[in-house]
Design a binder for these strands. Structure first.
Lengths: 217, 217
DNA sequence: ACTAAGCGGATATTGTCAATCCGTTTCTTG
DNA sequence: CAAGAAACGGATTGACAATATCCGCTTAGT
C-alpha cells in the first residue's frame, strides 16, 4: 500500500487508511456528504489526526470514493445497452441507477448537488451522458418512446425522483418507484393501458410525516 | 399601524416595518429563506437594529409572510375546483401552484423543506390537502385519471417538479413545465396521443451548466 | 534497542449568523 | 419650539460548527 506520494506505508498506517475509507463509504452512504472528517475518523476507530495525515481534506476522501460510484452507474448503463429490447434497457437503467443512488446518499448528493462536485460532475457527464444518449436514441428509433423525448429528460427525471426519494426515505423507501412508473407511462409512445404501480401511495398521514421530517440545517 | 403588542407605532417605525416586510418578501422570493435578517434590513434600507426591534427574529418575519403565500395556493385550488371540467381543474391547479412556487423561492422552501416550517407545513396541509383530495376524487370519478392515482401523488409530483425547477431556474426557468406535462401524460386514464411538450428539452451543454451551477453551502 | 513513522485528540482557526447595545437622530405633543 | 420618548444604525459580541494543526506519546521495523 502506498500513500499519495508513492512511498510505501507502514502496516498500521495502511490498515488505518483502509478503515478510514470503509468508514467514509459507510457514513457517506448513510448520512450524506456532510459528515465531518472527525466523524469518519471516530467511526473508523482512529483519531482525527490520523485521518488528516492520510488525506489532506474531506475532498480527497470523496474523490477516492467517487470513482467507485461512478463506475457502478456506468456499468448499469452498459448493461442496459446490452439488452436488445430498447424499452427494457431504458427502464432498467433508470431503475437500477436510482437504486444505486438510493442505497448511497453520498452518491446521490454528488450526482445532484453540484457545488460539491463540479469537476466530479463533469466526469460523470462525460462518461455517462453518451450512454444515456444511446439508450434514448435506440428507444426512439424503435418507436417505443415519444418522439419528443430527449436524452436530457432522463437526467431531469432522476433529479425529480431523487428529491422524492429523499423525502420519503424514512417513511417508505420504495415510494420513488411509484413515480418512476408514472414517468415511464408518460414517456411511452403509446399507452393503451396503464402500468400497474409497484408501490401503494402514502396515506395522508404518512405524507405529512414525510414532509415534516426535516433533515438539513 | 400597531406592533405585536397592540400599541400604535410612530410614523417612521410603521413605515420601516412595511419596508422590512417588502424587502423580506422580495428577498425570500428571490434567494430563499436563508437570507439573513441583516440582509433584509439592508435591502430595506434600514439598520439591523431596526429589524430586530420590529421582529423578534427571522421566524416572525417568515410567519408574517407565509400566510400570504398559503392563501394564494389555497385560492388557486379553489379556483381549480370551480372549473367543472375535473381534468382542467387538476391541470390548472398544478400549473398555477407551481407558478406560484416558481415565482417565490421562499414559498417553495416552506412548502418543501420542512425543518424550517413544521407547524407552518401542518397549516398548509390542513388547509390545502382537502382541496387536492376533492380535485383528485372528482377526476377519478369522471374516469379522467388512472384509477390508482392518489391525492398524495399530487404532492410528491410537486416535490419532484420543484427540484427540477430549482436546478434549471438559472438556465431555462420554464423547463419544469415540460416535466409537468410528462407527469400529466402519465396519470391520464388513457392517452391515445401524446400531449405536445410546452418547452424544448435543454441541450446537453445547458444541462451540464444547470447541474454544475451550485447554490447552497 | 533505537528511531522514524505513526498516532490521538485537545486546541487553534475560521466562518457564519443571530442578536444586543448604545450614542445619535427623529418624531410628537404640550 | 422645546424636551423627552421613541426609533435608528451598525459595530460588536457571542454561540456554534467545521476544518485543520500541533505535539507529547506509542509502535513498527531493522
Amino acid at each position: 500500500m502506498t500513500d499519495d506520494t508513492g512511498r510505501s506505508l507502514r502496516k498500521d498506517a495502511a490498515r488505518n487508511r483502509e478503515r478510514l475509507l470503509a468508514a467514509a463509504r459507510e457514513l457517506f452512504a448513510q448520512r450524506g456528504l456532510d459528515v465531518t472528517l472527525n466523524d469518519i475518523a471516530h467511526h473508523a476507530g482512529v483519531g482525527v489526526g490520523t485521518a488528516y495525515r492520510r488525506f489532506a481534506n474531506k475532498e480527497e476522501v470523496i474523490d477516492a470514493l467517487f470513482e467507485e460510484g461512478l463506475r457502478q452507474v456506468a456499468a448499469v448503463a452498459d448493461e442496459a445497452l446490452a439488452d436488445t429490447d430498447a424499452w427494457n434497457g431504458l427502464v432498467s437503467y433508470l431503475e437500477r441507477s436510482m437504486e444505486l443512488q438510493f442505497g448511497d446518499r453520498g452518491l446521490n448528493e454528488i450526482m445532484n448537488n453540484p457545488a460539491l462536485g463540479d469537476e466530479r460532475v463533469s466526469d460523470a457527464r462525460t462518461r455517462i451522458a453518451p450512454l444515456i444518449e444511446k439508450l434514448v436514441a435506440r428507444a426512439k428509433e424503435q418507436g417505443l418512446v415519444r418522439a419528443d423525448l430527449d436524452q436530457t429528460d432522463i437526467v431531469f427525471a432522476q433529479v425529480g425522483l431523487s428529491a422524492i426519494m429523499d423525502r420519503s426515505r424514512a417513511v417508505e423507501p420504495d415510494l420513488y418507484r411509484r413515480y418512476l412508473t408514472l414517468f415511464l407511462d408518460g414517456i411511452r409512445a403509446d399507452r393503451p393501458e396503464v402500468t400497474p404501480l409497484p408501490t401503494p401511495a402514502l396515506t395522508a398521514e404518512q405524507t405529512h410525516t414525510a414532509m415534516t421530517a426535516g433533515r438539513r440545517r
